[in-house]
């Protein structure tokens, strides 16, 4: 459903290409992990899919197709119809990714306000339903809270709710668990799995943490300095890494009993 073909991104103020020709596909209902260290270009890849790169400050080439629709070269106005409606994005820091002065419920329902004809009550009903689906208990109460009144974990659930409220085809998750503590991380991963299983949303999960990716994704792509160095099923990449960079990443995972051996 999502197809990235030979994507290049170069920022005008940098010498090196942030993304230097990557190709990647995500099938229907698939969760693909994209891993790499900071600066490897994984977030830039996600931002180009979401149309969030400042076009005036970078050169883009290649193709990004979502169900055959061009996402990279279409005019902004056409893209706005796709963003939010077909692609939901969840960012790293839920606290700063939310508007501090808007009620959480309204933010979750914002996509509906922009892309549907639902009236206020219908939107509210849908928002409460989605909040329930992401395991936010007391949705009525959460609806009227402001971001600073919720914990990081609850906010990230609300962000996920906002991203899926309109049932998009693709969910982009840019380090969604990095800012959360470990127990909350595990809960969020469970939630994502559940949403994938129940609603069949495809996901691109971006993380620098291979361990997290392993818990969630069946397929993983490894990025280094703007290129994909390895791609394959998570198990294969994990137990039989081909590229030295992947090996180093795996070796860097701390384990409970010293180094994990196969």
């Amino acid at each position: 459903m999502l197809e990235i073909r030979d994507l290049h991104v170069k920022f005008h103020n940098r010498d090196r290409e942030a993304v230097a020709g990557i190709s990647l596909t995500i099938g229907d209902g698939e969760i693909v992990g994209l891993v790499g260290e900071s600066g490897s270009g994984k977030s830039v890849t996600a931002m180009s899919i979401a149309g969030l790169l400042p076009r005036k400050q970078c050169d883009l080439s290649g193709d990004i197709l979502l169900d055959g629709e061009d996402l990279l070269h279409a005019p902004r106005s056409a893209l706005r119809q796709i963003h939010g409606r077909k692609i939901g994005v969840v960012f790293q820091e839920p606290m700063s990714a939310m508007d501090p002065l808007m009620k959480v419920g309204e933010q979750v329902g914002e996509v509906l306000r922009i892309h549907t004809d639902l009236d206020k009550n219908q939107r509210r009903a849908r928002v409460l339903e989605v909040m329930e689906a992401v395991d936010l208990h007391n949705p009525e109460e959460v609806y009227n809270k402001y971001p600073h009144e919720l914990s990081g974990g609850m906010l990230q659930r609300a962000m996920i709710a906002a991203a899926i409220v309109i049932q998009p085809a693709l969910l982009l998750l840019d380090e969604p668990t990095t800012a959360l503590d470990v127990t909350i991380q595990a809960q969020i991963l469970e939630l994502l799995k559940k949403l994938n299983a129940e609603q069949g949303i495809s996901m691109l999960f971006i993380s620098h943490n291979l361990n997290v990716v392993r818990k969630l994704c069946r397929r993983v792509a490894v990025m280094q300095r703007g290129v994909l160095v390895e791609e394959g099923s998570t198990d294969r990449v994990f137990f039989d890494p081909q590229h030295p960079y992947t090996k180093r990443l795996i070796d860097a995972i701390p384990t409970r009993h010293g180094k994990e051996t196969v």
Binding site: L52, R80, G84, V89, A97, D99, P100, L101
Partner: peptide, 24 residues
């Protein structure tokens, strides 16, 4: 960051300004 979120939801520049940035 909240501006990026607002854009990702399909808000145009005007809506980002009037619905989010202005109040902030």
């Amino acid at each position: 960051a909240y501006v990026r979120t607002a854009i990702s939801r399909g808000n145009d520049r005007h809506a980002v300004l009037t619905r989010h940035v202005l109040k902030n």
